[in-house]
Nucleic acid binder design. Structure first.
Length: 502
RNA sequence: GUCCCCGUCGUCUAGCCCGGCCUAGGACAUCGCCCUUUCACGGCGGUAACACGGGUUCAAAUCCCGUCGGGGACGCCA
């Protein structure tokens, strides 16, 4: 135990856009692995692409990760023993190391121009060869390099890929091998002096003592280059774990055109973080036995295993995410649901900015009634339109209601119900039951014929939540100073009969 | 094109490493039934898969080879 090296993993996004589900899943797997094994989780910002990197994205990145429920032990915001954690702040290291590699002949200056390289590339493609670097500048004499550089000719620095095949172990795919000829001598320093991604990751991972590199499998083909770099540096390569790609329903790599794919999107539509985390964990990983689906973050930390991660790509299934979200929505304490749902109702203009105690209490009831019926919080105001937006004319005109309102007994049911409701006094569920039985007796209508017209009269639709909970909310709501008046049962019935032409 | 990775129900997957316990398990979706004096919620059931072809073996979803299909990488992007 004492000799066991402490596990160190990192999540290294570039701040060039919103945090995507693919990256979020990578971040999650790193986090789970670190937390389970008592390791260190490092957050590092890869901003060597100055053109596309923006600080606002970095800020949002951290927010999104925190919202999901992840945290890190070292990073740009919290610091740590291997600071700085932003690549743009680490240029010295990259330059110094590159110079060292050149002086050790493990890397060399390359004077080839981009145009030249492009020509070579096209030629190789046309001849059906792997488009790798020709090696033109590999054997340049030190003297020639010296004079050309002195003459101001721009030069990039390339790493020399060794002659032997490059192998590495991947925790999800096993042993992988690349033939030396199939990998180019990669540029590690651009001719403008800026280091290249494939180079900086390795330097940083090595400097930061990263033991396990868990990342998307789009990096799998880059790995031989990186392994070669470790070799050149005289350092052992870390363990790798390449996670499969997340695809859209069309089996293409998931992207914005598939709809909501950023973490912020899901948060904004009212998906609970624990639901998203649970779903993401299930994309590519399954517990022993493979029969359990719901896991709290704690349980995930306990059960997770990199060895049980599947190598095959997975299609993102919104329906299953929604199922999990419904599951967690039902488990969510009322206070939390209240806090999360309130903004949606305020935006819809249904609940005031600073709801009174009475209104809040009533709103709790509304949420208890409607929350079991939605996939995401965002759908709540629309579901609540049965309380806030009753319209007799719309209900009568709705094509969906035509069949239910077209029955032989419809009019007599409506009339009988209306007759019995006109008296005053509180309108309770018990009262409602009594009336319904009387209406049944009087009209001979039962089942659908009985309930559908009444339901349409009260909420404008033949389907909706149970009356026992709905009715008291209607009654109480009608007495509250809401921005949008909630009509009482009597108001609804009166309005409906006034417009009912038959 | 070349290289690498991947291929079990429509979808996520268990099983594959260490062949027999697999008449292939679970979940989402879908369908049906029950509950509800109606609908939804909920409960219970059903349909549905080892990509294909060759081996190896007494025995293959599991091992080997090939084919096909999908994805990724081939950049002075990350």
């Amino acid at each position: 135990m004492a000799s066991e090296k402490r596990i160190r993993v990192r999540f290294a996004p570039s701040p060039t856009g919103q945090l995507h589900v693919g990256n979020a899943r990578t971040a999650l797997f790193n986090w789970l692995f670190a937390r389970q094994r008592g390791g260190v989780n490092v957050l590092r910002i890869e901003d060597t692409d100055v053109e596309r990197s923006e600080t606002r994205y970095e800020t949002q990145l951290l927010e999104d990760l925190k919202w999901l429920g992840l945290d890190w032990d070292e990073g740009p915001d919290v610091g740590g023993p291997y600071a700085p954690y932003r690549q743009s702040d680490r240029m010295q290291i990259y330059h110094a190391t590159a110079d060292r590699l050149v002086s050790e002949q493990k890397a060399y200056y390359c004077f080839c121009t981009p145009e030249e390289l492009e020509r070579d590339r096209e030629l190789a493609l046309k001849e059906g060869r792997q488009p790798v670097y020709s090696g033109k500048c590999r054997g340049l004499s030190p003297a020639e390099v010296q004079t050309r550089r002195a003459g101001g000719e721009p030069a990039a620095i390339r790493l020399r890929i060794p002659e032997h095949p490059i192998r590495f172990h991947d925790m999800v795919r096993g042993d992988v091998e690349f033939a030396s000829e199939s990998v180019s001598d990669p540029i590690i320093m651009r001719s403008n002096g800026m280091p290249v991604y494939n180079y900086v990751v390795v330097i940083d991972d090595a400097e930061m003592k990263i033991t396990h590199v868990i990342r998307g499998d789009d990096h799998l083909s880059n790995t031989p280059k990186q392994v070669a770099l470790y070799e050149a540096l005289g350092l052992p390569a870390p363990e790798f774990a390449h996670l499969s790609t997340i695809l859209g329903p069309d089996r293409e790599r998931l992207s914005k055109r598939h709809g909501a794919t950023s973490i912020a999107n899901f948060r904004d539509m009212g998906v609970l973080p624990e639901a998203l985390m649970n779903y993401l964990a299930l994309l590519g990983w399954a517990p022993t036995g493979g029969t359990r689906e719901t896991f709290t973050p704690k349980e995930l930390v306990k059960e997770f295993s990199l060895k049980r991660v599947t190598p095959s790509p997975a299609i993102f299934d919104m329906e299953k995410l929604y199922w999990l979200n419904r599951h967690y929505l039902k488990q969510s304490p009322p206070e939390r649901t209240f806090k999360l749902a309130l903004p949606f109702f305020q935006r819809a203009g249904f609940i005031p900015e600073n709801p009174s105690h009475e209104i809040s209490r009533w709103f709790y009831g509304v949420l208890a009634l409607l929350a079991p019926y939605v996939d995401k919080l965002e759908q709540l105001p629309e579901k609540a339109s049965i309380l806030f937006q009753h319209s007799a004319t719309a209900a009568i005109a709705a094509p969906d209601n035509a069949e239910a309102l077209g029955g032989a007994t419809t009019s007599t049911v409506i009339q009988a119900f209306a007759d019995r409701i006109s008296n005053d006094g509180a309108f309770s569920p018990e009262h409602f039951k009594t009336i319904m039985n009387e209406v049944k007796e009087a009209t001979g209508a039962k089942g659908k014929d009985l309930f559908h017209p009444v339901r349409i009269m009260l909420i404008g639709s033949h389907s909706g939540p149970e009356f026992d909970k709905l009715l008291p909310l209607l009654e109480l709501g009608s007495t509250l100073p809401l921005p949008v008046h909630v009509k009482s049962v009597r108001e609804r019935v009166a309005e409906f009969t006034a417009h009912w032409g038959r």
